[in-house]
Amino acid sequence: MTSITRRHFALLLPATVAACGGAPQPRGPVFKSYNGPPVTQVVVYKGRRQMYLLSGNRVLKSYGFGLGGQPLGHKQFEGDNKTPEGMYFVDRFNPRSRYHLSVGISYPNAHDRAFAAQYGLSAGGDIMFHGLGPEGRKLVQQRTDWTAGCIAVTDAEMEDIYAMLSMGVPVMIHA
């Protein structure tokens, strides 16, 4: 009887440890997978409302998008509703975004923070590529540029973008 108990214990121990967080657990909903060439750069043209995911010089995907409520000019201060311009990097993924899914960019950089600080203001932050989610679907019916400075695509497009991007990918945002 003792050997059966030990045997059962030996078989149940790995399953118990995995259930307590020892094994990786899936994040949120089931995500799309991407097995194509790596995205090496994201190029955004605010004026044209076009974003390109590139592998080297080859365009893998392009998307139209909505911007911040004040689409002209570079983001300088928190609350100005502008989308930044310049070189940034993918720096985080949020599978539980209120706008479906989101991928963060590294705004503000040191230059952005220093510029805002000389006016005694914050440069802001939390600039993302994101989907619409329920809130965005309502707002996009009223106007194209509705975010607080983010770059918004449809939920289905965001699922593709989320799958294709990885940490550290350069993001160049042009006027």
Results as ranks from 00 to 15, higher is better:
V103Q: 00
R27G: 01
F89H: 04
L53G: 07
P38T: 06
D91I: 06
P24R: 01
R6K: 07
Y63E: 13
E78C: 03
Y34P: 02
S3I: 10
V44S: 04
N94R: 01
G73R: 00
P24S: 01
G36Y: 10
L12W: 08
G21Q: 07
G56E: 05
Q50V: 15
V43L: 09
P108D: 03
Y99I: 01
F89I: 00
H8Q: 14
A15V: 11
S3D: 11
G86P: 03
Q76A: 10
G86K: 05
M1C: 05
N57S: 15
D80E: 02
V90G: 02
K75Q: 03
G22M: 08
H100N: 13
G86N: 05
C20G: 09
R6L: 11
G69S: 11
K75R: 10
G64W: 06
E78T: 02
I105G: 01
L13A: 12
E78F: 10
R96D: 14
N35Q: 14
T83P: 01
P84D: 00
L72R: 04
G68S: 06
K75V: 05
N35I: 11
R49H: 09
I4Q: 14
K61Q: 13
M51Q: 03
G79Q: 04
P29W: 12
G104V: 01
M1W: 09
A15S: 03
A114C: 07
G66T: 07
I4E: 14
R98T: 06
K75I: 06
Y52E: 11
D80W: 00
H74R: 10
G69R: 11
F89A: 00
M51N: 01
R48K: 12
M1Y: 10
K32G: 08
P38I: 08
G21Y: 15
T40A: 09
T5K: 12
G56L: 08
D80R: 00
R48L: 15
P108T: 05
S55L: 10
Q70D: 13
E78I: 05
F9E: 15
P37Y: 11
P29T: 13
P84T: 04
G104M: 03
K46H: 04
V42E: 02
I105W: 02
R92L: 07
R49G: 03
A23I: 02
H74E: 08
G68D: 01
T40D: 05
G21N: 08
G36C: 05
L72D: 08
G73P: 01
Q50H: 10
F31L: 15
A114V: 04
M51P: 02
R98P: 04
D112T: 02
N94D: 07
F77V: 04
F31E: 14
L60K: 05
G64P: 06
P29C: 09
A110S: 13
T16E: 10
Q50C: 11
Y99F: 11
Y34G: 02
R7G: 12
P26N: 02
K46N: 07
G73W: 00
M51S: 02
E85S: 10
Q25R: 09
F89P: 00
G56Y: 09
R48V: 14
H100A: 12
A18Y: 05
R92H: 14
